[in-house]
């Protein structure tokens, strides 16, 4: 299962501060969409608004429409928890639950929600999710060890396994490789390429090579100056963004002439 996301004139606010202004874009299903741009340009904020995670911060709100396969997720009657079960998220720093074993971490989406699942069902879910995250072979023999006993790259893949275990439609990744070494990064990038067979993947990255390697489409966000809202400057096929961008700002940024 994977779903398409349509944003229509989306503004994201923190209190009175307009953080992201007027984003309209279509994020394709079964594809990888990358957001690039300088720090503070609102790409992470926009991404967190895709599963209503930004609402965790006090005063954050959104205007405009955000459709998940045609359903507005910001309809007042929509429960943010429902949205988050459909749109999973992987964070910048790997954050396995320290009180849980590897196995429990993968099952966290079920266990924390109090779902009753049989032992064999749970085994299936754990194996499928860990295989899906390319981690099964490395942890097969030590599923009962704490999740924090893994290396940084393994922890990040454990977090991905935890996210895909609950079968979301969309997976959001907020700079998932920024704390990883090149080998772990490669492992995660390979994984992203596989994930798009089944899921809609959105990735925020500071690494332009990574965006070029893994994504089908790329959005470039920019900010006019401190205190100004971030905007989506250009959104197109990745090859177009990197080889033949329409906007001067995009060209400057992807060629490294920015700032």
């Amino acid at each position: 299962m994977s779903k398409r996301i349509d944003a229509k004139d989306l503004n994201v606010y923190y209190g009175d501060f307009l953080a992201v202004e007027g984003v309209s874009m279509t994020i394709d299903a079964q594809a990888v969409t990358a957001f690039i741009g300088p720090s503070g340009c609102g790409k992470t904020t926009f991404m967190r608004s895709l599963n209503r995670m930004h609402e965790v911060l006090p005063g954050a709100r959104v205007t405009g429409q955000l459709m998940l396969d045609g359903d507005d997720i910001y309809d007042p009657a929509v429960d943010p928890v429902t949205v988050r079960t459909m749109v999973g998220m992987v964070f910048q720093r790997a954050n396995p639950f320290p009180t849980m074993s590897i196995r429990e971490n993968v099952l966290a989406g079920y266990k924390l929600n109090g779902a009753r699942i049989s032992r064999s069902e749970a085994d299936d879910i754990v194996e499928r999710a860990l295989r899906g995250a390319n981690l099964w072979k490395e942890v097969e023999s030590r599923l009962d060890k704490p999740g924090s006993s893994l290396s940084g790259g393994q922890q990040q893949r454990l977090c991905i396994a935890r996210t895909i275990a609950v079968k979301p439609d969309v997976i959001l990744m907020d700079e998932p490789c920024s704390a990883l070494d090149p080998i772990s990064t490669l492992a995660v990038e390979d994984l992203i390429a596989e994930l798009k067979q089944e899921y809609t993947v959105v990735i925020v990255t500071h690494n332009m090579q990574q965006a070029a390697r893994v994504s089908d489409k790329t959005g470039f966000f920019n900010i006019a100056g401190t205190g100004k809202p971030g905007k989506l400057v250009e959104y197109d096929d990745t090859s177009t963004i990197f080889n033949n961008p329409r906007e001067k700002a995009t060209e400057d940024y992807v060629s490294g002439r920015f700032g």
Binding site: N51, M53, V56, V81, T82, R84, T85, M86, G88, M89, F91, N95, F97, A108, G109, L112, N113, C159, R162, T163, V166
Partner: peptide, 9 residues
């Protein structure tokens, strides 16, 4: 946040 992102109340 990790817990919220898994759809946990």
């Amino acid at each position: 946040e990790a817990s919220f992102a898994l759809g946990v109340r």
